[in-house]
Simulated assay, not measured.
Amino acid sequence: MGIFHWIFGKHPPRPVDPERTVEAAWMPMWQAHLVLHELWERDIPAVLSEDHTSHMIFTAREPMARIFVMEPVLKRAEAVIEEITGYPPAHQNG
């Protein structure tokens, strides 16, 4: 096992951190407000952040927002977002 394996090799998955906040979705502002309230109704704590940099990229043609949740409830939040919007949640960088 050399340095290249250390850099490019497989690493064990990081365990879920109950203290970590993660991005659950990147979506149009109007849609994010609807999804946020639905997450709250289903007892999934979430926050919304306006994405003020979205106007500088061509992938966003309208005001955008990000929804953040705690890492342990990420999968539940993504399932709710997909149920509400009909699409898997998008992330700006992926």
Rank of each mutant, 00 (worst) to 15 (best):
F68D: 02
H91N: 14
I3G: 00
P88K: 15
T85I: 06
F58L: 04
D43Y: 14
T59I: 07
R14W: 05
T59D: 06
S49P: 00
A79I: 08
E38T: 14
M70Y: 03
P12F: 06
P63W: 04
M29V: 10
E78P: 05
N93W: 11
D43N: 15
D17E: 01
D51F: 14
D51K: 10
E62N: 03
R66H: 15
G94S: 13
P12S: 07
G94D: 13
I57H: 08
L36D: 10
K10C: 00
I57R: 08
I67K: 06
H37W: 09
P63Y: 06
E78S: 07
S49W: 02
A79E: 15
Q31P: 03
P63M: 03
D51Y: 11
A77Q: 09
H55Y: 09
L39E: 12
H91I: 14
E41D: 13
S49Q: 04
F68I: 00
D43T: 13
L48W: 05
L48D: 05
L48S: 06
A77K: 10
A65G: 04
M1R: 01
P18Y: 11
F68A: 02
M64T: 09
I81A: 10
P12L: 03
I7M: 03
E62W: 05
P88S: 15
H11R: 14
L36Y: 11
P89N: 04
P28M: 13
K75H: 11
E78L: 02
V35N: 01
G9L: 00
M56C: 03
W6H: 08
P12E: 07
P15E: 03
I57A: 05
P63T: 01
D43G: 07
L48A: 07
W26H: 15
W40G: 08
P88N: 11
E41Y: 12
A90T: 13
A65R: 01
G94C: 11
G86Q: 02
F68S: 02
H11M: 06
H11C: 04
A25G: 07
E23F: 05
V47R: 14
P89D: 04
L34V: 07
F58M: 02
P28W: 14
R66K: 14
G2N: 05
A46E: 06
H33Y: 15
F58D: 09
E71V: 05
